[in-house]
Amino acid sequence: MTAPHPLYLKLQPQGRVLIPSEARARLDVKEGDELILLELEDGYKLTSRRLLAQSLYGSLQKTGEMKDRDFTQELLDERRAEAKKKGW
């Protein structure tokens, strides 16, 4: 990715903002697509669902001690034990 450069936007009636074609191309969005405005400590970040998913991909991978745990099975086992205690 190249060094960031500012794109100036103007707030229009009814709170609408026109996103320049350059930014739409980089976000790979078209009319009707949903965008996500993320609040950060020092401002906001505008992104698309696809780009957000790409940035999060792999962030939930299990590592270390967690690698061998099956959390789905653990949850199912807990629920079955609770149901058994209640006589279901």
Rank of each mutant, 00 (worst) to 15 (best):
R24W: 07
M66F: 12
K86L: 14
Q12T: 00
E22L: 14
L46P: 02
H5E: 11
D42Q: 11
Q54V: 08
G32R: 03
A25L: 08
E78M: 11
Q73F: 09
Y44D: 03
E39L: 03
F71H: 09
L18Y: 13
K86V: 08
A53Q: 01
E39C: 01
P20M: 03
D77T: 13
Q73I: 03
E31V: 13
E31F: 08
K62M: 14
K30I: 09
A83S: 15
L56R: 12
A3E: 06
T63D: 15
R50V: 11
R26Q: 11
E65N: 09
D70V: 07
D77E: 14
D70K: 09
W88M: 06
A53D: 01
E39I: 08
P6A: 11
L18P: 00
L18I: 06
L40E: 15
L40G: 08
E22F: 07
R80H: 15
S21A: 10
E22Y: 05
E82G: 08
H5M: 10
W88H: 00
S55R: 08
F71M: 09
T47F: 06
L76A: 12
P20C: 01
H5V: 07
R16V: 02
Y8P: 01
G43E: 04
E31P: 01
Q14N: 01
Y57H: 14
P13V: 01
S55Y: 01
M66H: 12
T2R: 11
Y44W: 13
Q12S: 03
D68R: 06
T72S: 15
T72H: 14
K67V: 05
E78A: 13
A23V: 13
M66G: 06
G15M: 00
L11V: 01
D77Y: 02
W88E: 04
Q54D: 10
R69Y: 04
V17C: 11
S21H: 10
E78V: 14
K62S: 12
E74M: 15
S48M: 02
F71N: 05
S21P: 06
G32T: 01
R80L: 15
H5N: 11
P13W: 00
A53R: 04
K10G: 05
V29R: 04
V17W: 14
E31H: 01
G32Y: 02
S55F: 03
E41S: 00
A53N: 02
L9G: 03
Q14P: 03
L7I: 08
P4Y: 04
G15V: 03
Q73L: 15
I19Q: 05
L60C: 10
G15A: 04
G58M: 06
A23G: 00
T72N: 15
K45N: 15
E39S: 02
A53L: 05
L52E: 00
L27C: 00
K45Q: 12
E82N: 11
I36T: 10
E31C: 00
D28F: 05
S55N: 10
L76R: 12
K86R: 15
Y8M: 08
E65I: 03
L56Q: 14
Y57T: 10
A23M: 11
T63A: 14
A25N: 07
S48C: 01
W88P: 04
L76I: 11
L76G: 07
